[in-house]
Design a protein around this nucleic acid. Structure first.
Lengths: 341, 341
DNA sequence: CTGAAAGCGCTTACAG
DNA sequence: CTGAAAGCGCTTACAG
């Protein structure tokens, strides 16, 4: 049988209250008593039963998710996943708040973070934008002891405790590898459509893409990045201009959102299916484009998995317990027409 | 606040013991009392706190995993994942037993299932082999009320309650799609290496592969399936004979195990990197082959995820509670050299 | 057929 | 600085 607080109390010759004080590092216990109890704890190999502790405490984990607002379908999917998670709140003992902030707006994100009531917060998960202001806000929360988790786009070096998302450099490399192989021996130009070079996930995908293109597919010329702000209309206009301007575009890597605009631009010129396209995020539009042969492949990250993982991670950080690492690794999902779920 | 058994007891004017009897459908309660209590339960929207119930019951879930023995690296990885899960037993309240049986041996699998002590069993997860004997054994367990989960290879129509694994037809289609595109406009023959046409996962992968090959890549000729019994030596010999016999083999789909033998056969003939290979399961050998350019792509299912999912599913079935569907969908992972984890 | 009381493993006022 | 007792939400003998 697993040892309990009763076993510790008996063996150490103290009361349950004292055992609890030592277990939870609360003050007001004589140093030598602490020592004695700790020795018993170690000798018994005691491990707290978290479920029982949470029952006794009526523990609830107040969590906050901060997600960019706007038309980006992936972000809306992320929002849906947060709402799903809220429905499980009573079972999971969570109390989840969802905040949306204007996209690509460092100030707005920092402001939202600064406005959080830190009191009792068990964790904050945010889709990060790179900026000193955001870093400062994250540092402030971290100083207050709130576990911070970055979601989808990381903010390394910052005081975040964990990143929940795919390896974006690897994703970019994978996109290049697929595109290059699909285009085997078909020289020409490859365009890159991004949202903004201000968010780290986009920057990293582009980096990985360029690495592999330069190293392995030298007969393909990569054009300068187009920044469509993850908006369908902007993407449509800019991609359209590019297609009208350039000859010999054989491939496109769409590493951000705005795929609806990209698809329109291709169709308007009868180029759907003629140009190999690798895109990100399996939204409804992307799914349709795969089925129609407009997209050759879609690289995806599972928003549901990400939200569940973020919640598990924040709770574990708040409780100081271990994670099952493999369970928290977010996969680079690759979808072709043939493995659509 | 969420209503508790105390609220029910008070509102229904009965004791906690009676509430518990009704909640757990135990007999020995007057019909009208049952009715009254049930009405109160419904009116309060009561939901049992499973953690508290398990604490009170000192509930433990006895689970059994049945996995084929032998050299198949993927199965050994599955076994490792089960051992990992055992390490979490005290936290997850599980008591996990691992049984190994000879591979591709219907009789041995049925015998192992029949030998199980059903008493109190919360679930059985098995890598299924297709056969009437296995179906009978599964039915017997199901009749005894034991939740059965198939793992990796399904046994549809049988009395299993859930399948934990990838969609193998889709996996086969995906393999064909990748291979066909990588070989674009390079006509020739494609070989298929399987373990055995007795296990459903292999049959289904082949089916999906053929579907796409016939429909989309008509300049590729698919050779008859080679059955290597998932053994490296057998695979090496049979693939070697095939390579020596056939001209113009441009691609190979390895849909089972025995990849070590396949790699040796290719290398012995200096064909590594010359023939496009799509294989299954990211074992150490497959990983190395990807890195070396011997394999173009590897389709994988995450053994850790499968074992964790099987455990969650069996516990949920035993308790009669709902699952988070998205969490239990096993992905078809596609690995290229560029997204190796 | 029904209920009072104790208990699962932990925490929390409160009293001393 | 320490402990006795009650309580978290549920279940389980035991008695009637």
């Amino acid at each position: 049988m697993r040892p309990t607080v009763h076993d510790i109390a008996e063996k150490a010759g103290v009361s349950l209250a004292t055992v609890d004080r030592v277990l939870n590092r609360r003050k007001g216990v004589r140093a030598e008593t602490v020592l004695r109890v700790e020795q018993v704890i170690a000798s018994l190999g005691y491990q707290r039963d978290l479920a029982a502790a949470n029952l006794a405490k009526s523990r609830v984990y107040p969590l906050v998710f901060v997600v960019p607002e706007g038309e980006n379908s992936f972000m809306r999917g992320l929002e849906m996943a947060v709402h799903e998670a809220r429905r499980r709140s009573s079972v999971e003992r969570t109390d989840i708040r969802l905040l949306t902030v204007p996209p690509f707006d460092e100030g707005a994100l920092a402001y939202a973070l600064d406005g959080l009531n830190i009191e009792g917060l068990a964790g904050v998960a945010l889709v990060a934008t790179e900026s000193p202001a955001v870093r400062r806000s994250v540092a402030r929360l971290a100083d207050a002891g709130v576990p911070i988790v970055t979601l989808v786009s990381d903010l390394p070096s910052a005081r975040r405790r964990h990143y929940v998302g795919i390896d974006n450099v690897a994703a970019g490399r994978t996109a290049a590898s697929l595109l290059g192989r699909f285009l085997s021996h078909r020289p020409g130009k490859v365009a890159v459509l991004a949202g903004s070079m201000l968010v780290r996930d986009h920057v990293e995908r582009r980096l990985g893409f360029d690495q592999v293109m330069r190293a392995e597919f030298t007969d393909l010329e990569v054009l300068p990045v187009i920044e469509g702000r993850d908006e369908a209309e902007t993407a449509e206009r800019l991609v359209g201009e590019m297609l009208d301007r350039e000859r010999d575009v054989v491939g496109i890597y769409s590493l951000g959102a705005g795929n609806r605009g990209l698809i329109s631009a291709l169709k308007a010129r009868g180029l759907n299916g003629k140009i190999e396209v690798v895109a990100h995020e399996l939204t409804d539009h992307a799914r349709q484009a795969l089925a129609d042969g407009v997209f050759a492949a879609v690289i995806n990250q599972d928003a549901g998995h990400e939200v569940r993982s973020a919640i598990r991670v924040m709770k574990a950080l708040a409780d100081g317990v271990d994670l099952v690492d493999g369970q928290e690794r977010i996969r680079i999902d690759i979808f072709l027409r043939d493995n659509l779920p």
